[in-house]
Design a protein around this nucleic acid. Structure first.
Lengths: 255, 255
DNA sequence: GGAATAGTGTCTTTAAGACATTATCTA
DNA sequence: TAGATAATGTCTTAAAGACACTATTCC
């Protein structure tokens, strides 16, 4: 049924948008071994994946991966499709961020963009490739992307908004699990949080997460006999492994 | 500069959306005097403003107020414009909720809707009027709207999402201030929260909000001499008035 | 006096926070 | 044995939670 067949209604009475793309801020945490004599936790850096545009507008500039939505899919499906095309990875985290509609934001016309952000573990990003509309694709540290790079469109705003949301949610929700394996040590969790929020410091972090209120959010990893599991991957002394239960923390007022 | 003049680029190579509307979930809390012998806190009910459609599609059904965006404005401006048109009120709360893009959600074509929600104090809603595209406009209790009413489009989903977000944020942020006057008693604040979340119960609510961690969020209202202000509007015994400082609570991990 | 809401006293339990100390394993 | 991270001991202070009690004012 075409619109013009219905009771004289026409959606074309006004100008309509020239496109509805989804842009995706793909975050990853890149680990590099610390230069120490003994086993240690790696150095970690929060990075963002950008593509280099190979066509007008903003040709040659770095931009967020993304693409136009089709009328047969939701914007989430658009984002997931583009995410899989750019990274070669399926079933990863992807979360809606905001809509960007400032007039003139896109020189191609009236184009309202929907931004998503995604947290992908670095080992899943090995197969990234330049899509057909990109000259190159690479990871930049978030600081570099925000401070030194001239970005296409309003993509700097989008990355900043995504980073703000990431910082807020990594403290308030269990979002950090996206950057961790199923079973992890509390030292690793602490490091992930500090990678995203360098100023974060809690002296008794490990003890704190093991006490009452957090039970229900984290649980010890258990082996087949029901005994706690320990790892020496990052330390001499074995560290207890934990997993997320799937519960999200709830908050009471102004607490 | 028209799109077709630029390096052969044309945004019209693909089908483009038929419109980008903003829909607004307008919440209010309606107070009615309790049938008691003495002064008391009012009964309160959370309500939502709906319009009755007078044209295809969904003619005669109740729907969220809203309208199409123009290329010269942001979607937030669209929402604020519609909000002022429907309610006659300016400068009210308005917050982005989500985007709704399920194919087929609008029989008029490919129409991606952007939902906002707004919290308006009931005394500001006296001048509401039916816009030109509405046969009628009225307030419904949120329960009635969600359970008994057949709503146009996917507006039931939108209202449910808005209610969920409202419930979450009224506990986590100072959103409740949108339903309160500048200076209010903690009993009023408690009532507002319980109106939105009936299951909420805190025995020591008033004391709790006056102790340490909350300082910085709420502060006592002071008169010209710097003395605390009390009100007997809802009670025999004078109740201390408070105001929001403007600070938002911060949250530490899993606490 | 009783109705209705505001607010305090008191006690117990739990968590937060600081900071020193010990534990485990390996290069 | 020194290095690196994991974890506990101990002490102090603050907050949570339960629940009984008092306060204020007006009908």
């Amino acid at each position: 049924m075409s619109p013009s067949e219905n009771n004289g209604y026409s959606a074309k009475r006004y100008r309509t948008p020239d496109g509805a793309p989804a842009d995706i801020v793909i975050f990853t945490i890149v680990s590099s071994p610390k230069n120490t004599i003994q086993k240690s936790l790696p150095l970690r850096e929060l990075q963002v994946m950008l593509i280099q545009r190979k066509a007008w507008p903003f040709e040659g500039m770095w931009a967020l991966p993304g693409g136009f939505s089709k009328e047969t899919e939701t914007l989430r499906e658009t984002a997931m499709r583009e995410l899989e095309e750019e990274t070669g990875v399926e079933n990863v985290h992807c979360q809606y961020l905001n809509v960007y509609s400032t007039p003139g934001r896109d020189p191609r016309g009236w184009i309202i963009s929907h931004a998503f952000f995604s947290m992908v573990r670095e080992e899943l990003l090995q197969h990234r490739r330049a899509a057909t509309d990109a000259a190159d694709v690479r990871l930049f540290s978030v600081d570099e992307a925000l401070e030194s790079l001239e970005l296409a469109f309003d993509h700097r705003d989008i990355i900043r908004d995504a980073l703000d949301k990431l910082k807020e949610e990594v403290l308030r929700t269990t979002l950090a699990k996206q950057f961790l394996p199923d079973e992890f040590t509390l030292g690793e969790l602490y490091q992930v949080i500090r990678t995203i929020i360098p100023s974060f410091q809690e002296d008794n972090f490990i003890r704190k997460l093991k006490t009452t209120r957090r039970q229900g959010i984290l649980e010890p990893a258990l082996d087949a006999e029901g005994a706690p599991v320990y790892s020496t991957q990052f330390s001499q002394r074995p560290a207890q492994l934990f997993r997320f239960t799937g519960n999200e923390p709830e908050w009471s007022i102004y607490g």
